[in-house]
Design a protein around this nucleic acid. Structure first.
Lengths: 211, 211
DNA sequence: CACGATAACTTGTCGGTGCCAAGATTCGGG
DNA sequence: CCCGAATCTTGGCACCGACAAGTTATCGTG
């Protein structure tokens, strides 16, 4: 069915959601601009007007992903008030938006120096660092270190202490590693049915990791 | 310069190393069978005789990677006798063999059901689990649990206790997350110059991660 | 040593893809 | 109302992965 009007209406968003769908069931390698155009019912060169090239589309997809992740983390931090739940939120995002999540951390796929992309990524990182100090079960919480009333500001990542930064990276590494390993199917079958429950179990084992 | 003999000699290995090189400086997305053939000085269809298709070549690359990783982990376990050093070995492999490492955990890129691939992957997993129980600074070490003289056997992964498995997955998640995040350039600049030193620092922070 | 089977490689072709250029259509601000 | 700009189309180019059929070297077996 050919569409009525010459203009699509919201081709840009249509392409992004189509891309996420296509990646989700065929992998990013098989992603094709021309196929997305077909799905949206436009000619093969139409996408080029909204995204300079394929990398441009993936840049937009990744940017959108970082923004949504940042928002989800911020919401989770306020709602659950738990560091573990913050990690679970991270994992949930990776599972629900698997396609986007995979693209976000494949810098060879998009324009890694894009300003919007960098801003969104920093936003997400800040939301993660904020959990290190603000949450009651956080390792570095306490009135001596920070004043809980003060929310993390933009650009904070560069200013936090080495301790906060390092613990933050440790937590990030752990939950990110779990997400990517699970997504790649590297984990044993027992974790396959309910990855979130498995994550709560496994992430909790960190106490016994007395390296 | 055309080569002397009609036969290449060791085209299979030549293609694999060329692939690793190509991926290392252009990313796996830009990898092209025809380009590999050109690099090896053979016709564009020659690679198909050693690997059925592109996924077949990447399967071989990943299998080789898992085998080398398993060997490196086993060697490290015997030499350094430290769980932290086992993690460092994992990271070193990811850094030195960046291209191969990235392929290994991108199951959409190769034939994930290949028997050789699965065997090699299990080998690597076993080497990792072995560190959980055998090493002196391991969280689950002790004569009550295991006899240190008995090396891990094949197929062990299915038989170990839930505790060992979970702590193992926690450790694996952490070091794997660190490696992938670092490779994707997501970490702050301060870790960029010496990732191994940064890893020692950050992985050590696990104690303060009292989730 | 010969010779036939087989493995290794080549040439040629096909549909598909990303990107570029040039033209057609529609929208929107003066 | 109209002209510039944004949106989309058509056409073409070089490249890619896969397939088919032919050529050359190697190797096991008599």
């Amino acid at each position: 069915m050919p569409r009525q009007s010459y203009h699509h209406g919201d081709l840009r968003r249509a392409l992004l959601t189509a891309a996420a769908d296509a990646i989700a069931d065929s992998g990013v390698t098989a992603l094709s601009m021309r196929d997305l155009a077909r799905r949206a019912g436009v000619s093969h060169a139409a996408p080029a007007h909204h995204f300079a090239d394929k990398a441009g589309l993936l840049t937009a997809l990744a940017t959108d992903g970082f923004e949504r992740l940042a928002k989800a983390l911020a919401t989770s931090r306020l709602a659950s008030n738990s560091l573990l739940e913050l990690g679970v939120t991270y994992l949930r995002f990776a599972l629900a938006d698997r396609a986007t999540f995979e693209v976000m951390f494949r810098t060879d796929l998009y324009h890694a120096d894009d300003p919007d992309l960098l801003a969104a990524r920093r936003q997400a990182a800040d939301a993660l660092y904020a959990g290190m100090t603000d949450l009651p079960d956080a390792p570095l919480a306490g009135p001596a270190t920070v004043s809980p009333a003060r929310p993390a500001k933009e650009g904070t990542a560069e200013l936090v202490s080495d301790e906060v930064r390092e613990v933050g990276l440790a937590a990030w590494s752990m939950v990110h590693g779990f997400a990517t390993l699970w997504l790649s199917g590297a984990f044993p079958d027992s974790t396959q049915e309910d990855p979130v429950a498995a994550a709560r179990q496994i992430l909790g084992r960190v106490r016994q990791l007395g390296v």
